[in-house]
Design a protein around this nucleic acid. Structure first.
Lengths: 233, 233
DNA sequence: CAAATAGTGTCTTTGAGACAATATATC
DNA sequence: GATATATTGTCTCAAAGACACTATTTG
């Protein structure tokens, strides 16, 4: 904030928080969309979002968490502020500002709920079978920017772990990296990377069932946030 | 944007754009601060900023450019949206949202102007002699986050060129990297990096005066935005 | 030519990737 | 044991850093 007096002489823009909620379903990235119940863009699919409640939300991130919880029931996801867009043309009602957050959650932790203002809530695969519909407002561009950011960060961080359930194997994790980056990676080099990042710990005694050698199960080490690698993948 | 009706039933938060304007003066990073003329925080130093003019600014970035131009006269800097902060406590007047931009400019291109709402405008060194004053609002934290982001990006991008004048030498550039990152770098490796990034072109025939071998002068190649290295510095 | 800094070349070490070998389950 | 995948080890190659050498200017 800065310059001025109490309230500016012109109307303040409307401020909303919009969520790009991503999860892994059947091995592919999915985004959570809502079908709008009211105009503008009624019936259109859009990113979940909502106004900031000055009396209820302590800060912007709290608003983002509230919206996420409303739609998915998920409480503590990986949450990251991605960008803020604002102009006079993106919403027919006038100058609006949207603060965009990306949330990564484990698909099995979500329990969808439409709630107010939404006719429907659904997961959509980012690629493949039912192509993504055109979205309301500038949400198509916002989503694209978000996914681009995710792909970029996956190159040099441990972000993908947040898309897996709490317990997972190294082959699971490698397959996920390969899915998101759309290229094969060397098993040996991948494991060396993960080992030196030192953010996983084996869950002793547990294995995974199959007709072959079972894989060690891991979980995030306590207090390990996202790790940045020294080098890119 | 998203959910709802025409206008929310609660007052919209005030929205401002705040600028972290950085330049290199006497070899050290400086930030441009204004001294506030009006309450709250009258007399305190703060980041330049201002309300978004819905009728005048096409979008948020245009507002940021307008503020920058007002204070420095600079037209086309490196400009990057850094973060958006918003809560009910950062401004005594109520819930506010601030969209923070970082601008990198060449010191020689700026012509400071106080303009409205500012008693004074001044460059402050980030480190050294006159220590930075405590800033109004949460601007101290915002500035710190910005500088952290800059240092981080300098590790893997060509960002620092925007702090130099249009024509500069490789030793100039290396010294700047070393200043910002606060460590010595190998001349040979540094030059290899810059060469393979392929974003500079030599200005033929020109050299630099001194009592030693003159350095080749370079400029940014046409159409070269910030380059991301494959590896970190 | 002495001083000072610009610019280049060489050697060593590190780390990533390719690929092979070994380990451990089920059937 | 046959099969399938997990996990580890080895070899090769390329890039980064350390460091030394050459180049070019002024006084």
């Amino acid at each position: 904030m800065t310059a001025g007096m109490a309230a500016p002489g012109f109307p303040a823009p409307i401020v909303t928080a919009d969520m790009v909620i991503l999860a892994l379903r059947d091995g592919t990235l999915n985004v959570l969309l809502i079908q709008r119940a009211a105009p503008p863009f009624a019936q259109n699919w859009a990113l979940p979002g909502g106004f900031i409640h000055a009396d209820e939300d302590a800060d912007i991130e709290a608003a983002a968490r509230r919206i996420l919880k409303d739609k998915t029931g998920v409480d503590s996801p990986y949450l990251e502020q991605v960008q803020t867009v604002g102009n006079g043309t993106r919403d027919p009602r006038g100058w609006t500002v949207s603060i965009v957050y990306m949330a990564l959650i484990a698909a099995d932790s979500a329990a969808l709920a439409s709630g107010a203002n939404a006719a429907d809530v659904k997961w959509w695969a980012l690629q493949g079978a039912p192509p993504l519909p055109g979205l309301a407002f500038d949400h198509t561009e916002i989503l694209a920017a978000c996914v681009k950011r995710l792909r970029n960060k996956v190159e040099y961080t441990t972000l993908p772990v947040h898309l897996l359930p709490a317990r997972f194997t190294l082959p699971d994790l490698q397959a996920l990296y390969e899915r998101i980056l759309d290229r094969k990676m060397d098993k040996s080099a991948f494991r060396k990377r993960m080992a030196e990042a030192n953010f996983l710990e084996p869950v002793m005694g547990e294995k995974r069932a199959a007709s072959n050698r079972p894989a060690q199960i891991y979980r995030l080490r306590d207090g390990c946030a996202t790790i940045f690698f020294d080098r890119t993948m």
